[in-house]
Design a protein around this nucleic acid. Structure first.
Length: 496
RNA sequence: GCUCCCAUCGUCUAGAGGCCUAGGACACCAGAUUUUCAUUCUGGCGACACGAGUUCGAAUCUCGUUGGGAGUACCA
């Protein structure tokens, strides 16, 4: 039997580091056994999937060197490899109908409102939250008539009500056992006629000759449904293997709030794909001789699925960084040169538009952009005190602004771009300069300090060390939040 | 709430009943090299979650407790 494994990401958002992780495991397993590694795009959620995102997956996998033998943009004998194309071919509908005709699935006419109130009631009673199977016994002829009359419906699987589901995962000591009655009558075909993940994945894995499904443990709970589907569709089920989920430092499932998860991000930051891959390879798996640095090819030779850990490893950026350094310093002079060049170019391209209007010579860029490259800036105390202000007043303005920026960054969904920053600063000005009806003369005087004229110049000098610069907010964005905060602090020290 | 999964240094891991006073890597600390920094080298700190049981012997097997995670969608 030829090993055939797949990864089946959904093209929503940026390509995910978890996809790379599971991809690596599958790739290594396939290569180790002389099998095939396949990419399938699961875009059955019409509301969330985009073609750009699918393209980004192809690009990222190629960047990593996880080249698939079969897939949407490389073809293969089991295509199409994009589920939306397979929907159009009527593949899933056919199998859903088969189950209905066998009496293993049924039409359900519940509205989302109905389902919501069902859930609310169950939650209130501390009952398991699941579909109450109210349409399970629906008369087939009646159901078909209603459907034919245009009433929206879904197709649900008729899971057993008695007995137990038992499955032994090769990575787990004990078999998984679960009472069938706790397993939901899962929707297989949505009211838009498209399949859910469960139907689509099982059907495609069968049709594509997949022998082993190596996936993250978030799928473990739906395993009974998948095995059941295989059985009732008359398929020989692939072997399912569930590996641990990548985690944040707090052990929760890795998320972009707490970790960079976008493969595009790693690429743009200059991470070497070899380093990222090697780092990923060390999570949940290890070289039998304890070697920690190895190439993808080497990994494919020693990889052993039975040695994979099931506990979810914490994704530790610090160790990745170390690995990156190891690989980077070993780069050939040509490649190192190229990598450095890439970084310089990137920064340069971002910066150039800001200076476009204020240059007469190419050389102007060199001195004007200096604060954007420098680690720190030197402030002249005189420049930090706008005309008509006292030193202490300058300092107060800086302190308040720095605090406001810090608060903003600490909040959720803080975006560091020009509109947000401008909104933040303008709001600050507005709030502070607002005339209070019962303000004392001192308070009113304080409020007057908060003018754009005063604050903008002050910030410009604090952030760049110079009195002239590109537009303030563009400047702050490009210099970056960490340095902006640091320089605001340095300026305050200068005013002591 | 309900169901399932998991449990060795802060983190990634080695460890399949005696080779374990638990090994390696990252991080951290100290020292050496380096004009400085980085690199490199040396040393140090540091864990079998807890409690029973099985056994001559348990990190390794069993049970319980605790802790953590995931799932609970007409998302994947």
């Amino acid at each position: 039997m030829t090993v055939r494994v797949r990864i089946a990401p959904s093209p929503t958002g940026d390509p995910h580091v978890g996809t790379a992780y599971i991809g690596l495991l599958n790739y290594a397993f396939a290569k180790k056994h002389g099998g095939k590694f396949i990419l399938r795009i699961e875009d059955t959620d019409q509301t969330r999937c985009t073609p750009e995102s699918a393209q980004a997956i192809y690009d990222s996998l190629r960047w990593l060197g996880l080249q698939y033998d079969e897939g949407p943009d490389v073809g293969g004998a089991y295509g199409p490899y994009v589920q939306s194309d397979r929907v159009k071919a009527g593949i899933y509908q056919r199998y859903a109908d088969q189950l209905v005709n066998q009496g293993d699935a049924y039409y359900c006419f519940c509205t989302s409102r109905e389902l919501d109130s069902m859930k609310a009631r169950q939650r209130a009673n501390n009952e398991p939250i699941m579909y109450d199977r109210r349409h399970r016994g629906i008369d087939m002829a009646e159901a078909k008539t209603r459907a034919a009359n245009g009433e929206p419906y879904v197709i649900r699987m008729k899971t057993p009500i008695e007995g137990e589901f038992v499955y032994k995962d090769r990575l787990r000591k004990q078999a998984t056992a679960k009472a069938w009655k706790e397993i939901d009558d899962q929707v297989l075909l949505k009211s838009d006629g498209w399949p859910t993940y469960h139907l689509a994945a099982v059907v495609d894995d069968h049709l594509m000759g997949i022998t082993h499904v190596i996936r993250a443990e978030e799928w473990l709970n739906s395993l009974p449904k998948h095995i059941w589907l295989n059985e009732h569709l008359g398929f020989t089920a692939p072997e399912y293997v569930h590996v641990g989920l990548l985690r944040n430092a707090d052990k929760s499932k890795i998320s972009k709030r707490k970790n960079p998860t976008s493969l595009k991000w790693y690429q743009s930051q200059g991470y070497l794909s070899e380093a990222l891959l090697n780092f990923l390879a060390l999570l949940g798996h290890s070289h039998p001789d304890g070697i920690e640095k190895f190439s993808l090819d080497e990994m494919c030779r020693f990889f052993d699925l039975d040695r994979v850990n099931v506990a979810g490893p914490v994704f530790d950026m610090t160790k990745l960084r170390h690995m990156q350094g190891q690989y980077f310093r070993e780069l050939s002079p040509e490649r190192m040169r190229a990598e450095v060049h890439k970084s310089i170019d990137q920064r340069f391209n971002d910066l150039l538009p800001l200076f476009k209007e204020r240059m007469a010579f190419g050389g102007d860029f060199v001195w004007q952009s200096e604060p954007f490259y420098a680690d720190a800036v030197t402030h002249h105390a005189d420049d930090l005190v706008p005309k008509g202000l006292e030193k202490a007043q300058s300092k107060m303005l800086l302190e308040n602004t720095q605090a406001a920026i810090k608060r903003y960054i600490a909040g959720d969904n803080a975006v560091w771009d020009v509109p947000s920053l401008e909104a933040l600063i303008r709001k600050l000005l507005e709030d502070r300069s607002a005339e209070l009806p019962d303000a004392t003369p001192e308070q009113q005087a304080q409020a007057k300090l908060w003018s754009p004229k005063n604050l903008f110049m002050l910030l410009r000098v604090a952030v760049t060390g110079k009195k002239e610069s590109p537009p303030l907010f563009d400047t702050m964005v490009m210099i970056g939040q960490a340095k902006v905060i640091e320089r605001l602090g340095l300026a305050q020290q200068k005013l002591r």
